[in-house]
């Protein structure tokens, strides 16, 4: 366990509130994520998990409270910079289907950061080697399996050298036999010291990798605990109820 008190938190939510129309989807959410900390967020569908992590890089506007990334408040002016330092992996991969794997991974470095093509490609190929997808570089997303696509999506985010990675149910759209390759990639990433916020239902992954597990229900954080405490001695009845249903 890390002690967040001494350094600036990587990501911090302070009393965040959000509404979709009249639906109050985030209610007074506060959470501090330390540098290099791995957080797994779980909860029933519609509990606001995805919405919460999408607030970190400004994909969702919120109406109350503050989100801080690396100590700075998230203002409209800071959003572009935050997006370049926070990587995100989506449930539905969202690879750009008109571009090859290599082009997918160099698009943002070249056009967003202004890195020259040669350097961006070299950087991407390094990442491919580490994630064991080097042979896919010139294929199009449509030619890849779901697991391969999601690993490419992770590589695409890593090519921007992010300080924080957000995972929005990265394995939910995968066939069962492909889940493990993606989880292995994420485990490797955790071992490299990445700060990670993962929305996932993979409880095995949570046990092995997470520093803390967050349980959300009805737009609020109900319980936060280290994995062994969370799984062995859940305190809130809703948490117990949820765990009983998914385990």
């Amino acid at each position: 366990m890390t002690s967040p008190a001494t350094t600036t938190p990587a990501v911090e939510f302070l009393g965040v509130n959000k509404w979709f129309g009249t639906a109050h989807v985030l209610r007074d959410v506060s959470l501090a994520v330390a540098q290099s900390e791995k957080i797994v967020i779980c909860g029933p569908s519609g509990s606001g998990k995805s919405t919460l992590i999408r607030c970190v890089n400004g994909l969702e506007p919120y109406q109350g409270g503050t989100v801080r990334v690396d100590g700075h408040d998230l203002t409209p002016a800071r959003i572009p910079a935050v997006r370049r330092s926070v990587g995100m992996v989506f449930q539905s991969f969202n690879l750009f289907s008109h571009l090859t794997v290599l082009e997918n991974c160099t698009l943002a470095p070249i056009h967003g950061r202004g890195i020259d093509r040669r350097a961006a490609e070299a950087r991407a190929r390094d990442e491919f080697a580490r994630l064991a997808i080097a042979d896919l570089a010139d294929r199009y997303p449509g030619q890849l399996s779901g697991g391969q696509q999601q690993r490419v999506a992770i590589a695409r985010a890593l090519c921007l050298d992010p300080a924080v990675m957000l995972f929005d149910e990265p394995t939910s759209a995968l066939d069962p036999e492909m889940v493990q390759e993606v989880l292995d990639t994420m485990t490797d990433l955790a071992a490299r010291g990445m700060t990670m916020l993962c929305v996932t239902h993979e409880m095995g992954f949570a046990r092995r990798v997470a520093d803390r597990v967050v349980f959300m229900d009805e737009g609020q954080i109900v319980e936060v605990a280290p994995p062994e405490a969370f799984f062995e001695r859940p305190e809130h009845p809703r948490t117990r109820d949820f765990l009983a249903r998914i385990l």
């Binding site: 009249t22 109050h24 007074d28 919120y62 109406q63 109350g64 409209p76």
Partner: peptide
């Protein structure tokens, strides 16, 4: 806690 959406907020806006 339930509340209606506020008229304006401190989050990023268009």
């Amino acid at each position: 806690m339930r509340a209606g959406p506020p008229e304006s907020g401190s989050g990023p806006r268009t």
